[in-house]
Nucleic acid binder design. Structure first.
Lengths: 368, 368
DNA sequence: TTGAAAGCGCTAACAC
DNA sequence: GTGTTAGCGCTTTCAA
């Protein structure tokens, strides 16, 4: 455990604390208030809870003493009884992205409003670490968990341990199975983006711009989200009566260099694409760079649009058309869903959040 | 409190739980193991701690039973005794930036390694909220706190309440007073960027590129960091024998539209700048946009460099020269410093982290 | 209206 | 080597 609280708990009351490290003093407890007022701990507890079973006079005295002594309730003691901390646990696959930090922000704001704190953990896209995180949160007896699974995660059985202890789980952004395709295991609530619709709409936009050879630039990943976006793309091509060409469906590792290579390879085809739909911001910016290097004009030679939450997409030249996930909203909704479960609603809920499409210079050939 | 744990704790054991919400069961405790094995709770506790005062046979039996019964230690009970949770509290002024999310990531990785979880709170640049956050963390009895103060925060006395309870505090990225200018209050540890050196180096780089009319584009904010960066800029001008012209020191709100206006105003001067140093990424990208709109070439007409952690700065045209804070490292160092305090080191430590300068097309006129 | 006491899970001091 | 017990701070019966 590496607990060092030890040193603080066994406060040796050393006479000469170095520097401003003023002697650690036990925070005031109900006992302190009680003994000061010469009444019982139970009465103090009741008064502080605003119970009507306490005389006004007593309550007043207690309240004032508490204020004066700067009493603050010890959640831990409380939690030992109730079995859970007023804390929402969050697991994200990688924290250092605008997307996840705003999901987190959304969760946090709703949680804070309801008196819950947020413990967040990072699985770094590792299934093993995700399992560790789940165990940690269980050990902390958090009230509930919101998670975005890793790319490696193929089933959610490791979350069942939480459910077994009565800790509700909500998946956000990345879910597994869920929706209709419920499998043997527990069905968990989820809040996800409407990926199919988003990709379909973006593709149809490109069609309306006059593009006929529309490519899609995907990351790797077995994520449902990727499959859904591809599905929306294909759906749109069908609707438009355009063929689905395998050589226009490209996969790249999620780094700039790889994505540039993959884009170059597509543009080297005998019939290169006249539009690209990139599935995330790294791919989007890399595609832009690759096209510019080849001296191609966007959107004239190739129209470009991609999923991205990077605000600076609007500032570059050409400004980039993007599809934004409403990440903060997704966090908020996930937390609201969790709070619902915490209040007793046991039925899983599946929320689908629409995306926002921002058409900018990189894909606009004509006014729509 | 809005505690809904209630429902979970008073588990009504309703016979027909809807769906997979398997009946919430109290997690196994030492007591369960003890009674199963017919030994005392204390022995189980000792065995699990690997105490030598237990026979190997007993230890084995306990270990196996624990594994089998999927026992996991209840931190809360433990913490009720020790007075603190194995949790590091973090307060950031706004979570939704690459900078703070990587600081957080750095903190988290070090904390996790030592068995600590991380509770993060967002002050949204509001002094009042920061105070609330501090109180919450105190109420949670976190082991220690790492904070980045808001722009409004002018002193740290609200953190003294933590120190008074023996909860160590470390400031990261944004500190107050500190260093030499210690004031009456407690002196807290800090981990900050070497802002003076960073701005000085960037300015000297511009000088070496042949720029003589170097402007600085600042955000508002009374942050020490801003003052330091400006100081480094001025220092460099002095060194280079260049005058400090007040009309080249511009202030803008931190949004693209304002920054574009401010940049335009500078470029409308009779003697417009031939270089701009932007103090954050919003200002940097906005300046780029403004200059491009005026048909100015970067770096020929105006050399541009700015503080930024946005990786896509490398992908735009011209690629942008940047000064990056080593945000993740700052988080790691802050957490290490905190752990040091947790282990008993009471002396405040002030770490200064150097920045990384990446010269790209927007400011490179010649090889250096 | 108030108090006394039990108990949440765990550790540590003190028996034996 | 193992058991017994007290106690961390709080809420909640049960009595008075």
């Amino acid at each position: 455990m590496g607990r060092s609280g030890k040193s603080a708990s066994s406060r040796p009351a050393s006479p000469k604390e170095p520097l401003g490290a003023s002697a650690p003093v036990r925070p005031v407890s109900l006992k302190d208030i009680a003994s000061r007022l010469g009444i019982s701990i139970a009465t103090v507890s009741r008064a502080l809870q605003g119970s009507t079973a306490v005389s006004n006079a007593t309550r007043e005295r207690v309240m004032e003493a508490a204020r004066e002594m700067r009493y603050s309730k010890n959640f831990i003691a409380d939690s030992l009884r109730s079995g859970t901390l007023p804390v929402v646990g969050v697991i994200v696959p990688h924290g250092v992205t605008l997307f996840y930090s705003s999901v987190l922000d959304g969760i946090e704001s709703v949680a804070a409003r309801e008196g819950y704190a947020v413990i967040s953990m990072n699985s770094h896209e590792s299934y093993e670490e995700e399992c560790r995180n789940v165990r940690s949160l269980a050990a902390f007896h958090v009230a509930g968990v919101i998670a975005s699974v890793t790319q490696e995660t193929e089933d959610c059985s490791h979350f069942d341990a939480l459910a077994a202890e009565g800790i509700p789980v909500v998946f956000v952004a990345r879910a597994i199975g869920g929706g209709q395709s419920k499998r043997e295991g527990t069905d968990y609530s989820s809040v996800t983006a409407d990926s199919v619709a988003a990709a379909r709409r973006a593709t149809l936009h490109l069609v309306r711009q006059g593009c006929r050879r529309i490519a899609i630039l995907c990351g790797p990943g077995r994520l449902r989200m990727v499959a859904e976006r591809k599905h929306g793309y294909i759906e749109a091509l069908h609707e438009a009566g355009l063929p689905v060409r395998p050589d226009y469906v490209a996969y790249s590792a999620i780094d700039t260099a790889s994505a540039i290579d993959v884009t170059d390879a597509m543009m080297d085809l005998p019939e290169p694409p006249d539009a690209i739909l990139a599935l995330n911001d790294t791919l989007l910016f890399a595609a832009m760079k690759a096209l510019r290097r080849r001296g191609l004009d966007m959107p004239r030679d190739v129209a470009l649009i991609g999923f991205s939450d990077v605000e600076y997409a609007a500032d570059v030249s050409p400004s980039l058309s993007t599809i934004e996930d409403r990440s903060r909203l997704m966090g908020e909704e996930a937390c609201l869903t969790l709070l619902g479960h915490l209040r007793g609603n046991a039925k899983p809920i599946h929320k689908v959040i629409p995306t926002v499409q921002r058409i900018r210079e990189s894909s606009r050939r004509k006014m729509e």
